[in-house]
Design a protein around this nucleic acid. Sequence first.
DNA 1: ATAATTGCAAATGCTTTGCTTGTGA
DNA 2: TCACAAGCAAAGCATTTGCAATTAT
Lengths: 135, 135
Amino acid sequence: MNNIVEKCKAKNVRLTDQRKVIAEVMSNSTDHPDVDELHKRVNKVDKKISIATVYRTVKLFEESGIVEKHDFKGGKARYEEAPEEHHDHLIDINSGEIIEFVDKDIEILQNKVAKKLGYKLVDHKLELYGSKIKK
Amino acid sequence: MNNIVEKCKAKNVRLTDQRKVIAEVMSNSTDHPDVDELHKRVNKVDKKISIATVYRTVKLFEESGIVEKHDFKGGKARYEEAPEEHHDHLIDINSGEIIEFVDKDIEILQNKVAKKLGYKLVDHKLELYGSKIKK
DNA sequence: ATAATTGCAAATGCTTTGCTTGTGA
DNA sequence: TCACAAGCAAAGCATTTGCAATTAT
């Protein structure tokens, strides 16, 4: 079963053939592919889907809250299916590998900091960049 | 006195007229200007300095650890003089205003999280996006 | 002197868009 | 049916770069 397709239906996002393929590919990805990589994977299923459609679709999905966009270092935007529970990312500066993590204490402190400054926290971005400890 | 010019001398970064102007403008900026804005301010002092030179110079300064580059939401990179002490940013989603803050507890937790995942923390990015609480 | 720097314009890389044809509900 | 979506190629935008002329040390 396919999560993104379900979410599209729930949110009344029109489902075309190409959107179904893109949705499937994204649902089956456990990493954080950029548009180019997504396009390659999508083309394995249907060669005729253009990169413009991939761009338009990820943007549509993002605006519908179905996927999340990340601007990690490197210039190109990367996407993942919107998770049930929020998480942040640690990026391996050597391999580029991305590890997801959750830290409730940090979240609590972020809210506290924002409030102290007179703001209501609406969104945040936390990225850790690190190198593997060899043991 | 001009901090960035001093830092250039300390780091053996060749000081041309245009770099001096750019350094001065950046040292006198308390906000986080993008290259276009920087170019405008620089041109008030010397109309002939090209935007290519501004791009080359901020990159040079950044690689020398003299200024910091930020990729906040909005597409264009923004710069500030490298601070003595590290700080993070809260961005007002309505006005675009940027507030700097320091939270040692969050820093400590970040290191803890990285270590738990088997990584040595090399760098991090924390951006809070919020809206002003009206009282 | 001479290796580095500048200005200009052209090139780049990612992303968006106009337009015509195709299609889902 | 018919408003919306796709494909293609052209345009956009921030940033980089090749090259000839200029400059710092």
